[in-house]
Design a protein around this nucleic acid. Structure first.
Length: 779
DNA sequence: AGAGCGTCGCTTTTT
DNA sequence: GCGACGCTCT
């Protein structure tokens, strides 16, 4: 053991202050290890200490690979290990997300699988654009086949390791057959563009390992000690990749908590963690059950909630922490009132309990909820930030800039070509582009190569040819400088040369100045990144951006109230946590009300939310809220009634019926329309309350803000169910449409001739139909 | 080619 | 309620 370890951490120091289970986990160095880590049980501490312990035991850092789900988790792990063993030593181990680590491997080995190392990573938007392009070329209507659905079906297939060949073979419905054809063309387009989507980063790594045993062996030898965080969230592909790497040494340590599995929708397969002992019969299992994070009250609430899930590993989380404050429930009339109530509560607590802004997190189920909360925080001047790092990179001008940069590294990237070729306008119109694209497809060459030959393509105007060649030259000219200039100065002069900045400068409107600024921010960011990392290349920069996630928020350290979805909050903790929008249909989401698996996942998500809190927990719901610009009534979430009433403070207990023990009608096995429908008197007003299958509670008097038509709702209707429209349709009914097939009514709006029904069809399509015209047959 | 207008779908969660 | 996209007109 020759690498440097600071004297202060001898191995006995490392083990100090650990409980028995933690110590066992840290000291287990050889052979498979499963750590079931309850929320707040010191998981990260154990992981980092274990790595330090391994290094002290003589394992070279470069033989250790840690896989996480977010860049942030990887970053944190690296930092903490750096503290323990010295930064230089810590930096020599590989730690990163599945996607970034595999991207790194694929760059090094790209030729083996027919790529070049400059391949581009397509994000969800890029791959959607590619799918649309493919569908256009194939003449498939995007009306009948929503590209979004195609994308998600293809993605699920990839996550389950189903190739297009297999998909085509197994397809039996017309939808699936068509999806299969699109899948095939999409794959071809990706390969031709020298591009991979997120899922490919995993799949191609597996392919690489399967086809090139020598390569696999190389990485098996390098990564002798594997560590996988959040193992309950691994999907099929990730599971297989880990198994392949672990095969030689079987030193694989996985950490997870089945109660915190919240990515089933993304292909996460909880069986991976449940079956770990089958895969590795010699595995040692350690349970971390002592919680160091939360008060007894918070933990009791979390436990009470998760107990309602049937599929669960038995586990008892306990704590020596004090009882702590009771839980507060804010029962509000509408979303605006909810936001105000939350702000008021935060102000109170911050002054009374010595919290500062950064001690507080406001969590919600859907990003859309951030709007009203944000407004309220802004109005009252509470410093806040929204954790959703992607939004900046979704701006048009930012995407354009990045696309230009991508072209420099990988000119074959057709999605980028299409995006920027006429940005700023160069007189290259849609018609010309289509001709070029067709020509490219006929000859099976990448778009950029077709552009070079544009002079030979029939029916392209002389002027257009000149413009195209100038564009090609712009890219080529700067491409030649890739080796010579630093990423930052190249990007600077190149983006300047594209004319984008000039275009926005000339416009000189507030919006265009904004856009100009954003481009400038990207360029400065490159400069900064380069300063911190002198090995930076444009390729690695672009990759970092592509793999950025919501949870990777640079602002998180600042003294501000944090707002984020519960998904983004996983792995974080805050002294005070507010969970907003606890309403049936929103949390749990409407589609989880009938589907037990979905419902259990929602409940786990709630569990994750609750266990983020260290000291105080505030829950809130609104009786009505705007959704899609329409007012919607909600019942309080069933999850609220699962928490013992005694855990709430007195005021909350009095203030709301929501925490009364569950009534029979409350979700679970009941279909929402099973209660007797009550006629609504405002049926002809148009735009009936299209609830999430919800009832306005009796307390809902006229509210301040809602549209007039709703403030008049007579009290007698308070308990009415989802309105039965004149057509006799109700939410949840199964119907048959002559063209689209069988589906379920997901929503109703309007009435009489204007009545519309939203129907979720079994083939995945979702349509809003005029009840009067669509021949819907109730089945 | 580009501006202007209307329609549609969107909000579940992310690498 | 908004933004993306497609259509039409100039």
């Amino acid at each position: 053991m020759l690498h440097l370890v600071p004297r202060s951490s001898s191995s006995s120091d490392l083990l100090e202050g650990l409980n028995d289970a933690q110590r066992t986990a840290v000291m287990h160095t050889e052979g498979p290890l499963l750590i079931i880590a309850g929320a707040g049980s010191g998981k990260t501490r154990v992981l980092t200490l274990r790595v330090a312990y391994l290094m002290q035991a003589g394992v070279h850092p470069s033989h250790i690979l840690a896989l996480t789900f977010t860049n942030k988790a990887a970053q944190e792990m690296k930092e903490r290990i750096g503290h323990l063993v010295g930064e230089g030593t810590g930096a020599r181990m590989w730690a990163g997300t599945f996607h970034s680590i595999f991207a790194r491997i694929l760059r090094a080995e790209a030729e083996h699988i027919g790529y070049t190392s400059g391949f581009t990573i397509y994000d969800t938007d890029d791959s959607l654009a590619a799918i649309k392009a493919v569908m256009n070329a194939m003449g498939i209507s995007q009306q009948v086949m929503p590209p979004q659905g195609v994308r998600s079906r293809i993605s699920s297939a990839k996550n389950a390791m189903v190739s297009w060949q297999e998909y085509v073979r197994k397809a039996d419905s017309i939808q699936e057959k068509q999806t299969g054809q699109i899948y095939e063309e999409y794959e071809k387009r990706l390969t031709q563009s020298n591009a991979m989507d997120f899922d490919d980063l995993l799949l191609n790594t597996i392919r690489l390992f399967e086809r090139h045993d020598d390569v696999l062996q190389k990485y098996q030898q390098r990564f002798r000690y594997l560590l996988v965080d959040e193992y309950q969230d691994t999907n099929r592909a990730q599971y297989i990749a880990v198994s392949m790497l672990a095969k030689a040494f079987r030193n694989v340590c996985v950490v997870g908590d089945d109660a915190q599995s919240i990515y089933r929708w993304r292909g996460a397969d909880i069986r991976n963690i449940l079956d770990f002992q089958k895969d590795y019969p010699e595995a040692v299992v350690v349970r971390l059950e002592q919680n160091y994070r939360s008060t007894k009250t918070i933990l009791s609430a979390a436990d009470a909630v998760i107990k309602n899930n049937r599929k669960q590993l038995a586990k008892t989380l306990w704590t020596e922490n004090p009882e702590g404050e009771k839980i507060t429930l804010l029962a509000c009339r509408d979303d605006r009132e909810e936001a105000d109530a939350i702000v008021r509560t935060l102000r109170e607590r911050i002054s009374k309990s010595n919290f500062t802004y950064k001690d507080v997190a406001v969590l919600y189920r859907t990003n859309a909820q951030s709007q009203s909360l944000e407004d309220a925080l802004r109005r009252s001047n509470l410093p806040y930030h929204i954790v959703s790092g992607v939004s900046f990179y979704k701006r048009k001008e930012v995407k354009d800039t990045l696309s230009y940069l991508r072209l420099l590294v990988n000119p074959a990237d057709s999605e980028s070509v299409m995006r920027v070729i006429n940005e700023p306008t160069r007189g290259i119109g849609a018609t010309s582009l289509q001709r070029i694209a067709e020509w490219a497809q006929q000859r099976n060459v990448a778009m950029f190569d077709a552009l070079r030959e544009v002079g030979m393509i029939p029916n392209v105007q002389k002027r257009t040819v000149t413009a195209v060649l100038e564009f090609v030259d712009l890219i080529d000219r700067h491409r030649a400088l890739l080796e010579e200039l630093s990423p930052s100065s190249l990007a600077q002069s190149y983006i300047e040369a594209t004319g984008m900045m000039q275009q926005y400068k000339q416009l000189d409107t507030e919006e265009s100045r904004d856009r100009w600024n954003n481009i400038d921010r990207v360029l400065s960011h490159i400069a900064e990144t380069q300063e911190r990392d002198d090995t930076l290349t444009l390729a690695t920069y672009i990759e970092q951006i592509a793999l950025l996630s919501d949870a990777d928020d640079p602002q998180l350290g600042n003294n501000r109230v944090a707002m984020m979805t519960m998904h983004a909050a996983k792995g974080l903790e805050f002294p005070l946590v507010v969970i907003a929008g606890l309403e049936q249909g929103l949390f749990p989401l409407a589609k989880a009300e009938l589907d037990m698996n979905e419902q259990e996942e929602e409940r786990r998500l709630f569990y994750v939310g609750i266990t983020r809190a260290r000291q105080q927990l505030v829950l809130s719901y609104a009786e009505r809220r705007y959704r899609f610009g329409e007012l919607v009534f909600n019942r309080p979430s069933m999850f609220l009634s699962e928490i013992d009433k005694a855990l709430f403070d007195e005021k909350s207990q009095k203030g709301s019926r929501a925490i009364e023990p569950m009534r029979a009608s409350h979700g679970m096995d009941q279909r929402p329309e099973s209660a007797a429908p009550v006629r609504r008197s405002y049926g002809d007003r148009g735009g009936a309350a299209r609830g999430y299958g919800a009832i306005p509670p009796p307390s809902s008097g006229p509210a301040g803000r809602p549209k007039e038509s709703y403030s008049q709702v007579p009290a007698s209707e308070s308990y009415s169910q989802e309105p039965t429209s004149s057509s006799g349709l109700r939410v949840g009914m199964r119907v048959k449409h002559p063209m689209f097939g069988v589906g379920t009514v997901a929503g109703l709006s309007g009435s009489g001739q204007q009545a519309k029904a939203t129907v979720q069809f079994l083939n995945g399509g979702r349509k809003q139909l005029m009840v009067a015209f669509a021949k819907l047959e109730v089945i």
